[in-house]
């Protein structure tokens, strides 16, 4: 089956998808935004992640949870084009039609990564240019896609700073002068300024204290709802997925061991490991 799909190439849906995606070559707006099939990444003999498949629908947030070393970040890297999977396909529905992002050319993938995609790193230092002002950080995506009008670039940068609750007056300050929470919000603004359809988030609240976490989660929830953003959210914090994610995938040793609606998985875990994970959460 896999071999057949690979031969058919991007743009042609598999039959197992049901009536929606098999009905036409270029599916309508109710088709999945991201179709992940049999993603496998090995590090030598060891497994990073194995045989992961799922669909992500427009406006949906998929949470991936699991302990350290379970393959969450490897999977996210493969999905977002930062790592090359050994096997499998990641079909993203672009403005012109579905494309397998694993096999697309690097310039195309880079263009996608700064228009339709967003990537929020756990450590804002990885996602920001620390030596460049907040406005320059937010404006970079616009300039990279051809914006050449300083006034307009600065205007949208200021607008986005306000949307992530950073005072417009700090537009010329460098991120190094910002607090951890502000840096994380700046990173989000920098990513969302191009109006992406899909955000990859790697522990977006990691390293922040709980009250700052709560504000950030609130902000993210608002943005996801307002922009109709889909997201793949990797975290080990079950409270974060409870708030943000519609669906949940639990990973262990590189394999997905349980999937389902977030509330269903958290309230009625079936797999032994998921039960352990849920019961390990400290209660205040």
């Amino acid at each position: 089956m896999m071999a057949m799909l690979a031969e058919a190439g991007p743009g042609i849906s598999g039959e197992e998808e049901g009536p929606i995606s098999s009905s036409s070559k270029y599916p309508g707006p109710d088709a999945p935004l991201l179709r992940v099939r049999q993603i496998t990444k090995r590090y030598g003999a060891r497994i990073g992640c194995a045989d992961v498949s799922f669909d992500l629908w427009p406006g949906e947030v998929m949470g991936i949870v699991g302990e350290s070393g379970s393959g969450k970040s490897t999977l996210l890297g493969c999905l977002s084009g930062q790592l090359r999977p050994d096997q499998g396909e990641v079909v993203f529905r672009t403005r012109t039609g579905p494309v397998d992002t694993v096999r697309m050319s690097e310039p195309d993938r880079r263009l996608l990564a700064r228009t339709d995609w967003a990537f929020v790193h756990q450590n804002p230092r990885d996602g920001l240019r620390m030596g460049v002002s907040a406005g320059g950080n937010v404006g970079e995506r616009l300039m990279a896609t051809g914006a050449r009008h300083y006034g307009r670039i600065r205007g949208s940068a200021g607008e986005w700073l306000e949307r992530v609750e950073i005072d417009r007056g700090r537009i010329d300050d460098r991120p190094s002068q910002f607090s951890g929470g502000m840096q994380q919000r700046l990173q989000i603004a920098r990513n969302l300024v191009s109006g992406p359809k899909l955000a990859f988030m790697d522990e977006p609240t990691g390293g922040l204290d709980v009250s700052v976490q709560a504000r950030l989660l609130d902000l993210l929830r608002g943005l996801v709802r307002d922009m109709g953003l889909s997201a793949v959210l990797v975290t080990h914090d079950l409270a974060v997925v409870r708030l943000l994610a519609d669906r949940l995938m639990v990973m262990k040793d590189g394999h997905v061991i349980e999937t389902g609606l977030t509330d269903q998985v958290l309230d009625d875990p079936q797999h032994g490991y998921t039960q352990l994970l849920v019961s390990s959460v400290l209660q205040v």
Partner: peptide, 16 residues
């Protein structure tokens, strides 16, 4: 890749 957005950031910083 002729991916020169970064160069423009340098000029942006100058004006800012």
């Amino acid at each position: 890749l002729a991916d020169y957005g970064l160069m423009q950031v340098r000029l942006y910083e100058d004006i800012a």
